[in-house]
Design a protein around this nucleic acid. Structure first.
Lengths: 168, 168
DNA sequence: TAGATAAAGCAACTCAGTCTCAATAAAGAT
DNA sequence: ATCTTTATTGAGACTGAGTTGCTTTATCTA
């Protein structure tokens, strides 16, 4: 199950929690229990996730003290994006988040069959983007590149299914 | 106001209306008045638009017979995408449409200040995409590439504003 | 032209995300 | 350590995009 294309983490001086505290202080905001719970939870595993998952995990079946309400989940997610800790993207009209802090720039292959997001890095892409921007006197600050298609796994699965149909 | 980067239209054998009729027949669907009104309206000007604009233009201040209801606007937009006449993309959690039929492949620069979408073509991008896909045994079918930033106009505007502030 | 049935329109609904506002809890001051 | 100020939380109401159920209307076929 080892992925030869898995991205390396980037070394950073502060933990996400510490970085977030920096950010909060710089904005005159408070370091509260719900904010701590959320960031702890979010950075404990490295997957793409959406607000609903978080709400599920932190509002409903969560024992006693580490509950966070729906509005606070949304509010804090926005702060984490604002603080540069998370990156937000829209896929199929739904917001999906991933780690940004301590993680290298990358783009995604999106399998329309199993909804899996596969990450990849391409320095050429950024060059290409900057070149296009230059041509249009456009000041590029970020980009979103998502390739839709079918992943290896799902191709195999549908080939199998197809063969079975051919026998009929 | 002539844009040196404006994309050329692609020659097509059928008008959008004709293509849509083909599609509808092939699906055993009916060629109705609302569908006719909608496609006529949508292909009469070449801009990016969203469902709300259409609803506004076709439900409210529209004289008598060419009214189309909200659900029908949404339903027909989906059909037009399905039929390959329109292309749909998500920007800021909102669906935006543009002509696909009779129009070349392209990607977008998105000005986060004035919300303008600037089109550009880059054959290299598709190559790059296919190359990455190949590396991951991924069967790519489409992609979405949006570069966020500030357009030329808005850069000028904010420079002007900045200068004014500097004088204070 | 009549009859079968797809589609339109209305209103009610869903779902993600936001807002209001009373109650609570950080943080600095005492 | 406690008080006071005020940001933040949480509950529920709200919004806005998009969808659905259902009755009526209109298109197609024979």
């Amino acid at each position: 199950m080892s992925d030869p294309f898995a991205l390396e983490a980037v070394d950073v001086a502060l933990t996400p929690m510490e970085r977030f505290e920096e950010y909060l202080k710089s904005k005159g905001k408070r370091i509260t229990q719900p904010r701590r719970i959320l960031i702890e939870h979010v950075f404990s595993h490295h997957e793409h996730f959406d607000a609903d998952q978080l709400i599920d995990e932190l509002s409903h079946h969560s024992k006693g003290s580490d509950r966070v309400s729906r509005p606070t989940v949304y509010r804090t997610l926005n702060e984490l994006v604002e603080a540069g800790l998370l990156r937000k993207m829209e896929i199929g009209g739904r917001a999906v988040y991933e780690h940004d802090y301590g993680y290298p720039d990358h783009d995604h292959l999106y399998c329309t069959q199993c909804q899996q997001l596969i990450e990849f890095q391409s320095p050429e892409l950024k060059e290409l983007r900057d070149q296009v921007a230059r041509m249009h006197q456009f000041r590029a600050s970020s980009h979103r590149f998502i390739v839709n298609g079918v992943c290896e796994e799902c191709q195999k699965k549908s080939r199998r299914k197809k063969r079975r149909v051919d026998l009929i």
